[in-house]
Design a binder for these strands. Structure first.
Lengths: 193, 193
DNA sequence: TTGAAAACCGACTGAGCGCTCAATTGGTTT
DNA sequence: AAACCAATTGAGCGCTCAGTCGGTTTTCAA
């Protein structure tokens, strides 16, 4: 792995763990073995490095879900919704850094003034909501999901699933213990007419 | 209003807007007209000030919801759930600072090492989830809500409502436009057997 | 082999930060 | 009038940090 790549990888972890402000270039330098000057040789400043991290987060998440939905076969749209929600919980447990970065406020504050940052975030979220929407549409065609606005329902499903992941990362409640209840709630929400 | 009170009030706004690290005592001093020394006379350090802010947030939120549920009469448990969710959205729009503070990671990171902070957060969340749970129990007694685990369902309802508020504060999607869909989704989720 | 570009290094800089402290004020008690 | 005290002040201290810079090493095509 090139030094640039290892910097990017370590930065993902560090920004996720400490947030933008509390992640210091000195610590990043120690972690990677690269001198501070080297970091600034590859990324012109801290903000640029953060943006590069956000881009890889977006690519990794979208790619992971694309692979999952392409590989797996779903019997019904309802089943697809439930499986995607489960997979979301699974991924968040498996790659907590990626989701932690999306749950911190750093990116949203930067997005207020930086269009590129905003684009990364919108792409990531739209990609995820799109998957739920496709599943809802599918379910409404095959009859497994009742009549309701597909896009808005997809946003609700996404909000609920993502909210559970977020609460889990706060260490106040255990989202794992709620996963089966999440699935049950989604099922009831979608099959009621 | 005493100088101490105005410091606390301004700090609430500043911590909510900028987060713990980016909120500087110099700016707080400018905002309030109090010298920096005065701030440290009333609050021994920045963390103590932050804790004091968190405590007022907890008190304000719990108090607001207590007043609401005490004043208003609910015909059924289901209606209470839906009304409480609506009131949650209303409050978040009316006092965005309070919820912004709960949505930032600062408090949760402090809670990892500071039991008092953890207590404030748990009290706040438990207070809110309790309201939903009472409503669900009520609904299951009067028959307006189907059979399902009350506490876990309350957590799901809370997660969903709070998640919507959070997304709204990110300025990526408009939670206001989803409020009617939130209510509809909750209704379907609760009345299905 | 060579030499220029790319990659890398780490001591250094200056701004900004939380916090301290000696001094001052104005009101109350003795 | 003297003593006391809580509240307030702001210059300044020690420290951390992102970012710079002059120099060194590595790479690789000619």
């Amino acid at each position: 792995m090139s030094k640039k790549e290892s910097i990017l990888q370590a930065a993902t972890w560090l920004f996720a763990k400490k947030g933008f402000k509390d992640a210091s270039m000195a610590e990043l330098s120690k972690m990677t073995g690269a001198a501070e000057g080297t970091i600034f040789y590859h990324f012109k400043n801290k903000e640029t490095l953060f943006l590069a991290v956000l881009e890889t987060v977006k690519l990794k998440i979208i790619n992971e879900f694309d692979e999952y939905t392409a590989k797996k076969e779903f019997k019904t749209g309802l089943e697809m919704v439930l499986d995607v929600a489960s997979f979301y919980l699974y991924m968040a447990g498996h790659s907590p850094d990626l989701f932690m970065l999306l749950h911190r406020h750093d990116a949203y504050e930067l997005a207020e003034v930086n269009p590129v940052c905003r684009e990364y975030l919108e792409d990531t979220y739209n990609g995820l909501v799109d998957i739920f929407e496709r599943a809802v549409n599918l379910g409404q065609e095959d009859g497994s999901i009742g009549a309701m606005p597909a896009r808005k329902t997809a946003l609700i499903l996404f909000t609920l699933t993502d909210g559970l992941v977020r609460f889990n990362s706060y260490n106040l409640y255990n989202a794992g213990a709620l996963s089966s209840e999440l699935i049950a709630a989604c099922k009831r929400m979608l099959t009621n007419s």
